[in-house]
């Protein structure tokens, strides 16, 4: 179908639609009164709860920091606290960037661009997040052993660790693989949108 034929069909449809008006005041108001909570708001709230948990853990490590009496334990403690302090802030920032898509004031081009860029940043942050979570998980092993059981794993290695660490590695490897698979298509789509805008 060529453009001219489309225009003729479209115009005929528009004329008929004008005669078939369906909306009433009641329907319009009903539509606008619904409590709309977007998916992003839900994630944002979950992230906020996660952030609070991270900061509680940070305070707990800080309060017991004097019990970490060797340099390796202290370094582990500091790294853990850094991860707990920085990751929630970065996470909230990337989600806020996604929420910046304001459909009521932006042009179509701006909406697409902001959305695609925000999505790319979000996916890249999630990759960093998983890497940092892995480091964090490794660091919490000696920290929790010391803080809860008084054992210094850097001095006396527990044989159980020989089983636990490989399991952790396998678990994280699988998690990373699944996450990357999910995000690959998201990234591809974002790239496609950006490319489409620039064409």
């Amino acid at each position: 179908m060529e453009l001219e034929e489309m225009q003729a069909a479209w115009s005929q449809m528009s004329q008929e639609l004008e005669k078939q008006k369906q909306l009433t005041d009641e329907i319009i108001l009903k539509m606008t009164q619904q409590k709309y909570t977007s998916q992003w708001n839900k994630i944002f709230n979950a992230e906020k709860i996660g952030g609070v948990i991270c900061y509680v853990a940070l305070v707990a490590i800080l309060a017991n920091f004097r019990e970490l009496d060797t340099i390796p334990l202290q370094v582990s403690g500091i790294l853990c606290m850094l991860i707990l302090a920085i990751l929630p802030i970065l996470s909230l920032k990337t989600i806020q960037a996604m929420k910046r898509v304001n459909v009521t004031s932006m042009s179509y081009k701006e909406t697409m661009k902001t959305y695609a860029k925000g999505k790319k940043n979000f996916v890249n942050f999630q990759k960093l997040n998983i890497g940092m979570s892995f480091v964090f998980m490794l660091l919490t092993v000696p920290l929790s052993a010391k803080l809860f059981n008084g054992k210094d794993l850097f001095e006396t290695l527990d044989p159980k660790l020989g089983i636990a660490v490989p399991f952790m590695l396998i678990f994280f490897g699988l998690l990373m693989w699944v996450v990357m698979r999910c995000y690959k298509s998201v990234l591809r789509n974002s790239e496609k949108i950006l490319q489409e805008i620039e064409e």
Binding site: K30, Q33, K35, Y36, T37, S38, Q39
Partner: peptide
């Protein structure tokens, strides 16, 4: 899509 849509 989890926005609760009202049945109209």
């Amino acid at each position: 899509r989890k926005g609760t849509s009202v049945t109209i």
